[in-house]
Simulated scan of single mutants.
Amino acid sequence: MYVTRTEATANPQSFIEKTLQTIKVYTAVTKPRIMILLLFTAYCAMIVAQKGFPDIYITIFTLVGLALSSGGSAAINMWYDRDIDAVMQRTAKRPLPAGMADPRKVLWFGIVLEAVSFFLLAFAVNWLTAVFSLAGFVYYVFIYTMWLKRTTPQNIVIGGGAGAFPPLVGWAAVTGSVGLIAIVMFIVVFLWTPPHFWALALYKNEDYTRAGIPMMPVVRGPRVTKRQSVIYAALLLLASISVYFTHDAGPIYLVTAGLLGIAFLIYNIMNYRERDDSFVWAKRTFRFSVMYLPALFVLMVFSMGH
């Protein structure tokens, strides 16, 4: 995919096409859809911490720094998991298993992104923000990707902490400290991750079995997975409404967050009641979970102080 200066001069159209393709490939290895959710939860935490829109300078540098860190960890995840991605139908078309990028270049790309992220956040925002962002990177790359994912069915449970760091990043960027609500936001994302991901794993079970990944449905079966999903959904409901008891959110939040959490719990209960060879409710639960988390964080933003 490398183009020499002579080739670029001789065929500028081909050079542009290859450059755009390279950009597309390296954008894909940063998992932009996941990144958007992480940035969204961080920004919501910034607004809640500020009790209004934070300074534009802090906002830009925080979100850019977090995006670089998230993209870097995703790139290294794709580099490390390229062997199992190649045998899973859901991931076989990713850039590395599809042969569209050099693994070593993707690895260095991820390392450079994180290095730039850390120094950008440290010097343009504050050191606590940089440390939280780095902690999320280390958690996702080393604890989840390289250790837990291939060794234990609790990989998603423990590994859920990686995606829970952005609210701490956003809060620290505005306040330079850690607040109680930021910790609750962390817990919410942590508890949301198992029922969200296990719903997907239930109907993608063949993929994980073929790749030898000990996801909960593979190791413990759908019954245990569904039962634990119900438990996590119930705990998530309690964690989400606990924001009300910090006295920063009013009755509207309590009622709305409660209804939202009850709905998610019902989806998981219906999934539990469904036959293990049917995945209608697993797919519905996964789709609802994708909507649930952004909706809850938006609710937090609009309910603070009301």
Rank of each mutant, 00 (worst) to 15 (best):
Y2K: 14
R5A: 15
T6V: 13
A8Y: 01
A8E: 11
S14V: 04
I23H: 04
V25E: 12
T30M: 15
K31S: 07
P32W: 00
L37V: 12
L38G: 04
L39P: 02
T41S: 10
M46S: 06
I56L: 11
A67N: 02
G71V: 05
S73R: 00
I76D: 01
N77S: 06
W79G: 04
D81N: 11
R82K: 06
I84E: 12
A86H: 09
A86Q: 13
V87T: 12
Q89D: 15
R94A: 08
K105P: 00
G110D: 02
G110T: 03
V112N: 10
L113P: 00
E114R: 09
E114N: 12
A115L: 15
A115I: 07
F119G: 00
L120H: 01
L121T: 05
F123K: 10
F132R: 08
F137M: 01
Y140K: 07
V141Q: 10
F142K: 05
F142D: 02
F142Y: 14
I143H: 02
T145F: 05
L148I: 02
T151D: 06
N155R: 13
N155A: 07
V157E: 06
G159F: 03
G160V: 13
G161L: 15
A162R: 09
F165V: 12
F165Q: 00
P166W: 01
G170Q: 05
V184Y: 12
P195C: 14
F197T: 09
K204V: 02
K204Y: 10
P214F: 12
V218S: 05
V224K: 08
Q228M: 09
Q228C: 00
S229L: 03
V230L: 05
I231L: 15
I231R: 15
L235P: 07
V255S: 01
G258A: 03
G258L: 11
L259K: 09
G261K: 11
A263Q: 10
F264Y: 15
I269Q: 05
I269P: 02
M270E: 11
D277T: 12
T285L: 03
F286I: 11
F297L: 02
M300V: 09
F302E: 05
F302L: 14
S303C: 09
M304C: 08
M304N: 05
G305L: 08
H306V: 11
